[in-house]
Amino acid sequence: MVIPVHDVDNPVRRTPWVTYALIAVNVVVFLRTPGVVDSLTGDTGLAHLCRLQAFLEHWGAVPRELVSNDPPTQVPTGGTAVGPRGPGCLVGPPGYEKSPPLSVLTAMFLHAGWLHLLGNMLFLWVFGNNIEDRLGRVRFLLFYLVCGYAAGYGFALVNPGSAEPLVGASGAIAGVLGAYLVLYPRVRVWALVPFFFFVPLRLPAWAVLGLWFVLQALYSAGYGVSGAASVAYLAHVAGFVTGALLALPLRPGTPPPPGAPPPRRGRPVGPQW
């Protein structure tokens, strides 16, 4: 895995306000998530976990609910109790009405931890501005949401019995990465490579994003991760493929970035990636 830092060769023509707004909303929602302040003070006890579980169950997208389109009848309430097996989270009828399709939208702005949030926002910061610049603000927002929905429902259709709530902007941002790979494959991206002790390297976007996608595909197939992995890698794959397909019609009319390396001279050998 490589960590992108900046695509210096790909300037934008206008301020990417939608990208900035998406990042701001994600951060604000995370800071208002129950238990976030407690985690900063080291309080990660049962009460903290139960409140977080109830919040994510309420606003997250549960695959089983998406497939059946039925809201839950028993959910975590956020309280704690001591039962025959020891302390645990209280479960009871929901005190709210939940729309499974709408939960996909709310789930895009939830994150379960600091690393989850910061990783997603970094990728959106580096690659979102250019896709917004190419699509325009309104179309970019619609594109982002469509990729998020494709990721959520794509995962649910393959895992219809899963009761774990899906949360995070990863699926929508994966769509942004797929579009970037299609539109700007040869742009150089500054990235940190853990294998080389986090030394910054200037790599083509096709290498950075192509490697990211291959790893997500392998992880989604069960290679390199344990069976108990909590990351919905298949949602990343679905979002990425959706974004790439939506961007394909735009590729012929996308001018090369001013700082991109020039195409090779000589005998044509096919499309230059």
Rank of each mutant, 00 (worst) to 15 (best):
L22W: 06
L183I: 11
P72Y: 00
L135E: 07
R265H: 15
I131Y: 12
V126W: 13
G266Q: 10
R134Y: 04
G259C: 14
I131A: 02
F155K: 04
A191R: 08
A47E: 15
P165G: 06
V25Q: 12
L124M: 15
F196C: 03
P34Q: 00
Y144C: 10
G92W: 03
P271V: 14
F198H: 06
Y233Q: 01
D70T: 12
T77N: 09
Y149W: 06
E164N: 12
T19Q: 01
H111T: 05
S226T: 14
P261E: 10
G210W: 11
H6K: 12
P100K: 00
G45E: 01
L105C: 03
A221Q: 10
N159G: 03
H6Y: 13
A207C: 01
P257D: 11
V199G: 03
S220M: 05
P204W: 03
G95W: 00
P200G: 09
F213Q: 01
Y223I: 15
R139I: 00
P249C: 12
G239R: 07
V208E: 04
G45M: 02
S39V: 05
F30E: 00
T77D: 08
L183R: 05
A217H: 04
H58D: 05
G259D: 14
F140K: 05
G259K: 14
Y184A: 01
H111C: 03
Y149V: 07
V231F: 02
R265G: 15
R14H: 15
C89L: 05
A172P: 05
E65L: 11
I131N: 06
W273G: 02
S68K: 09
P94W: 00
L90T: 14
T254C: 10
G35M: 09
L31Q: 13
